Structure formats: structure tokens, C-alpha cells
Simulated scan of single mutants.
Amino acid sequence: MLTFYYAPGTCALASHLALEYAGAPYEAVRLDFRNQQQRSPEYLRVNPKGRVPALVTDRGAISENVAILQYVAQSFPAANLAPLDDPFLLAKVNEFNSYLASTVHVNHAHKGRGYRWVDAEDTAAIEAMKKKVPQTMAESFTLIEEKMLQGPWVLGERFSTADLYLFTIAGWLEGDGVDVQRFPKVAEHMARLAAAPQVQKVVAAQKA
């Protein structure tokens, strides 16, 4: 049995969805960020970074969506969550997921976690980062819309973990001051996934 740690509204949704799509045996453990549960000694023993997601396996814990998504895809190959038979396409999945993790997520984080880059007392810098978020998120999604989302899925006709990650990050656009309807392919992709029973199950569980 796998143990999966998450917090609602975070990027951990991507890995949570992957576990559900894979049909993996797992227990989902919600962390209360408001009460700093991610900084508790118990959780820091699982993930010293104090962040989500984290997945505990029989060989130890794994953190970071990119790593967890590939682990799930490789551990449950029958679910076809990654093109494991094609080195090039598998690299393209990791390329896309890495872009979401290293660039798009960082753009989003400047809205609420500017203190990671400057001192919290530097309010002018904090506000400047917040102000920039709609622009940088829109620029990233313009690239995704025009160059990276092949349609109907990220890889074209082949569904993968990249679609679950894109659905997760795209769900932040409205809160970041960006109208998703500016990106018709992304909006259609979101709507299609939102209607999937696996997505509805996980989203409902995270809201409960």
C-alpha cells in the first residue's frame, strides 16, 4: 500500500490523479497547511523539504511531481500513463512536466510566496512579483497553447501524466488573473478532464 501526502489546492493534485488513473492501492493523507502540518517533525521525516506531494513506497519516500508521476507510470504500466516503449516520447513527457515544475509553477509562486526570493520585509519587491504573475503565467500558457499542447492531449492522441499535470496547473490561471478562455485548446483540455470520473473523484475527495 502506497501512502500519498497532499494538501488541497496544491500541485499535489497531479500525482493524486495519476495514482487514481493507475488504479494504484494507496492511502491519501491530507496535510493542514494553515496549521503548518507540513513542518511537523513527523512529516519532515517523510519529506525534509516540508512540501507536497510525497509518496511513501515500500522502498522509501519520493517527492516532486515529476518523479512521482514517472514512478506511478512505470509501476503501473497497464494504465498507459506514459509512453514507456518510446524513449523520445517519454522524454517529451518529462520535458513538458519539467517545464510546468521549473517555470510555470515558479511563475505562480511569485504571487503568494515571494518571500522565497526576497526578504519578507521587502514589501516593494513582494508586490512587484505579485504584479508580474498575470503576465508570466499568460506568457507560459501562450507557449503551451501554441507550441506544446499537440491536442487533444499534450502528446497528441496519446494520453499521459503530462495531461494530469497540465490540468492541475491550468486550474490556477483564474486565481492568477488570467482568463483560460484566451487559450481555447487548454480550456477544452481542462473541460474534458474535468468530466472524467477519476478527476471528479479525486477533486471531490480533496474538497471534502
Rank of each mutant, 00 (worst) to 15 (best):
residue 41 P to F: 00
residue 60 G to N: 05
residue 176 D to M: 09
residue 51 R to E: 04
residue 145 E to P: 00
residue 103 T to D: 13
residue 117 W to S: 06
residue 133 V to G: 05
residue 92 K to G: 11
residue 106 V to Q: 03
residue 50 G to P: 09
residue 146 E to V: 15
residue 36 Q to W: 15
residue 178 V to G: 06
residue 35 N to W: 12
residue 203 V to D: 05
residue 20 E to D: 12
residue 81 L to A: 13
residue 86 D to N: 15
residue 110 H to P: 12
residue 128 A to S: 05
residue 49 K to C: 11
residue 204 A to H: 07
residue 63 S to W: 06
residue 33 F to L: 12
residue 15 S to I: 03
residue 76 F to V: 10
residue 70 Q to W: 07
residue 109 A to P: 00
residue 153 W to C: 03
residue 86 D to K: 11
residue 22 A to F: 07
residue 80 N to I: 14
residue 82 A to K: 09
residue 206 Q to C: 05
residue 100 L to Q: 15
residue 27 E to I: 09
residue 156 G to W: 02
residue 35 N to H: 14
residue 176 D to H: 00
residue 169 I to W: 05
residue 98 S to Y: 01
residue 161 T to A: 11
residue 68 I to A: 02
residue 84 L to M: 08
residue 68 I to R: 04
residue 61 A to H: 06
residue 199 V to A: 05
residue 64 E to I: 02
residue 64 E to L: 01
residue 88 F to K: 15
residue 63 S to G: 10
residue 19 L to M: 09
residue 143 L to W: 11
residue 155 L to S: 04
residue 28 A to E: 05
residue 78 A to R: 14
residue 130 K to E: 00
residue 179 D to N: 11
residue 135 Q to D: 12
residue 194 A to G: 13
residue 46 V to G: 02
residue 32 D to R: 03
residue 143 L to M: 15
residue 189 H to N: 00
residue 102 S to F: 11
residue 128 A to E: 12
residue 75 S to F: 12
residue 130 K to V: 00
residue 49 K to S: 15
residue 143 L to Q: 14
residue 204 A to S: 14
residue 35 N to F: 13
residue 18 A to V: 11
residue 102 S to W: 07
residue 66 V to C: 10
residue 64 E to R: 03
residue 158 R to Q: 12
residue 21 Y to Q: 13
residue 79 A to M: 07
residue 43 Y to V: 06
residue 139 E to R: 13
residue 104 V to G: 00
residue 36 Q to S: 14
residue 22 A to D: 08
residue 39 R to K: 15
residue 20 E to A: 13
residue 57 T to Y: 00
residue 183 F to W: 04
residue 176 D to S: 06
